Amino acid sequence: MNAKNKSGKPEWVDPDDAPELTDAFFEAATVRNGETVVRRGRPTNPHRKQQVTLRLDADVLDAFKRQGAGWQTRINEALKASLSH
């Protein structure tokens, strides 16, 4: 049972006596923003994409890949644009 001091104040604890906070401590910690738990990693997208197998002409694929990283996103944008015409 916890007993109060005669003065009624909580007993002082030296912060130098606290255990060292290691990288493992922070990796296992639950991060909160107020009452909300902040999830680690990539946030979920409400408009999830579906993985498909798609056969394209080699020259079309090469043209998108030559433009650098993000070629799959650019193909997706080109297909979306073709739907609006």
Rank of each mutant, 00 (worst) to 15 (best):
L79T: 02
Q51D: 07
K65G: 03
V13G: 02
A28P: 00
W12L: 11
H47M: 08
E35M: 11
N33K: 12
A28L: 10
K9E: 07
Q67A: 15
K65Y: 04
G70Q: 09
K4I: 04
I75Y: 01
V38W: 03
D62V: 09
E35P: 00
P10Q: 12
S82D: 07
V13D: 05
A28I: 02
D14T: 05
N2V: 12
T73E: 11
P46M: 12
R32L: 11
D62K: 13
V13M: 08
L56W: 06
T22N: 10
R48Q: 10
P10A: 14
Q72G: 10
S82Y: 09
D14A: 13
R74K: 14
M1T: 08
T44C: 09
A78F: 06
D17N: 14
F26I: 02
V52D: 02
G68F: 07
A58E: 07
T44H: 06
G8F: 06
A58R: 10
T30P: 00
E11K: 14
R39M: 07
P10T: 09
K49M: 13
K80Q: 08
P10L: 11
F64K: 04
E77G: 04
H47E: 08
T22F: 04
V52R: 15
A18S: 06
D59M: 08
N5K: 14
W12Q: 09
N5I: 03
L61Q: 01
A78V: 03
F64R: 05
V31L: 08
R66F: 04
S7F: 06
D59Q: 06
R39L: 13
N76Y: 07
F25G: 01
E11R: 15
S82C: 04
D14W: 10
A58C: 02
I75H: 00
A63Q: 07
D14H: 06
V60S: 09
Q51R: 14
A63G: 02
N45E: 10
V52T: 06
P19D: 13
L54E: 04
G68S: 03
W12Y: 14
N2I: 13
D16E: 12
M1S: 11
L56F: 07
D59H: 08
R55M: 11
Q67L: 15
H85W: 10
G68L: 11
A18D: 05
R55P: 00
T53W: 15
N2P: 01
P46V: 08
A69Q: 09
F25T: 08
F25W: 14
K80N: 05
S7M: 10
I75D: 00
I75C: 06
T73K: 13
V38G: 01
F25E: 09
A58Q: 05
K9I: 03
T30K: 15
D14S: 10
L79C: 07
E35W: 06
R48I: 03
G70Y: 05
P43D: 11
A3T: 03
P43Y: 13
L56M: 11
F25N: 07
